[in-house]
Design a protein around this nucleic acid. Sequence first.
DNA 1: TATATAATTTAGCCTGTGCTACACTCGGAC
DNA 2: GTCCGAGTGTAGCACAGGCTAAATTATATA
Lengths: 165, 165
Amino acid sequence: MAQPRKSTQANRRRGGPRPGVPGPDDQARGHHRTRQAHLVEVAEDYVETIADLLEVQGEARAVDLARRFGVSHVTVTKTVSRLQEAGLVTSRPYRAIFLTPAGRRLAAKCRHRHRVVVELLRKLGVREGTARLDAEGIEHHISSETLAAFERFAGRPAAPENTAR
Amino acid sequence: MAQPRKSTQANRRRGGPRPGVPGPDDQARGHHRTRQAHLVEVAEDYVETIADLLEVQGEARAVDLARRFGVSHVTVTKTVSRLQEAGLVTSRPYRAIFLTPAGRRLAAKCRHRHRVVVELLRKLGVREGTARLDAEGIEHHISSETLAAFERFAGRPAAPENTAR
DNA sequence: TATATAATTTAGCCTGTGCTACACTCGGAC
DNA sequence: GTCCGAGTGTAGCACAGGCTAAATTATATA
Ligand SMILES: [Mn+2]
Ligand SMILES: [Mn+2]
Ligand SMILES: [Mn+2]
Ligand SMILES: [Mn+2]
């Protein structure tokens, strides 16, 4: 508690990259990656859900997305226009929302990764419902190396989820 | 492709809770939980890192946190005052930052969970560096049920990380 | 003791992502 | 052909969490 201040500007320098011990910069790298992930996270969930809706009902409407994400349609509209800027979706006033080729590619990647994460959790004994809830957040922080490890342990995504999903 | 519009307002209702098939509301629940997690995520990482610094050098300064998170010191200051509002840390002008009892409890919980996640990834064959990077994001989306499953598979957090950490 | 410099504060600014309230369109029912 | 309601659009707000620039304080050391 009443310790002397041992860390004024002089002796609190960098923290060299000794092997084994993390070090401030490694930590910064990790957090930076997490922040990056959160920026693309919304895009990933949107294209994934839009792909879903396209398969199930032939088109994706803003109101469907709002319902699935549990947000207002206004939030969806604004996000969709950002995604359009980014070249992932197409949308015209009062019309449905569709995916660009880039959007389809991203959706395919995300749906695969999502399925793998759920599979892994199930394999570890997590119940179906919990696995689905947790996977929704976890999926966006899985590097390709970790994804490979998950696949190795859980096996290929079993069946394509339920049926065609 | 050129499918007829099969989903006008009439036939696109709710999507009943058939067992097995997710359904819009379950999805909404998952996304809602993820958004919640992102709100507490910053708090978790801050108290965790502050606890680290307190152990290592007896106090936590804004500049240390800025370095570890890879953000500007201004961002740290603003965040810290939010955490103070939330009763997790104490801080006075030009002084170091400390944890409240609530902050210490949260930090302990997060450090444990963080370690378990890293352990699990290591156990699955993910390399040390990658495991650390991915864990930084994954940790915030682990329910208590999933945490238990991780512990079951990876074993108790081995040794307390490196040494005292 | 004086001073240089590191650390902190403060004052703006931005973007992303959420909301409510209200206006508008479009399509199916009548 | 009209009209009503579900779906969209738009305006305006809030908050989290980033930033730079400039002013201020504390402290190490000369
Ligand atoms: Mn997700
Ligand atoms: Mn997903
Ligand atoms: Mn983290
Ligand atoms: Mn996350």
